[in-house]
């Protein structure tokens, strides 16, 4: 088994409380499935849209640079046999239903 990071990018946020409750219900169901199948190593957390960026000169500026459609909205850590399998599992992610996408990245094993 290898570990993979899911970066949830883009996708529409907000909506009415009912809408967001419905969307979050989908997240719950999806993560329940991943828990049952033993693939969810760490559910991670969703992220706020706002933030700060610190550069090499130590300058602090507002907000991530990415455009809204690429903005990282959260992360999870999953376990799967292969990158292909991890990508396959990401197909159930509710972010896909609101115009976002999942970036699947293998965790690098540093050989020292």
């Amino acid at each position: 088994m290898s570990e993979f990071l899911y970066l949830y990018r883009g996708g529409q946020r907000g909506g009415t409380p009912e809408q967001s409750q419905q969307i979050m219900q989908k997240w719950l169901n999806w993560m329940k499935d991943l828990t049952t199948s033993g693939n969810l190593k760490d559910p991670g957390q969703p992220l706020e849209g706002e933030g700060k960026v610190v550069d090499t000169k130590g300058t602090v500026t507002d907000g991530p640079f990415a455009e809204a459609k690429d903005l990282v909205g959260g992360f999870s850590l999953v376990e799967a046999d292969s990158l292909a399998r991890a990508a396959e599992l990401a197909r159930g992610c509710p972010i896909l239903e609101v115009g976002g996408f999942v970036e699947v990245r293998p965790i690098m094993k540093m050989d020292m």
Binding site: L28, M31, T35, L40, P43, G44, Q45
Partner: peptide
């Protein structure tokens, strides 16, 4: 872990 993450805790 579903109670540990904001993805799912409320629901």
């Amino acid at each position: 872990r579903l109670l540990q993450t904001e993805w799912t805790v409320a629901n």
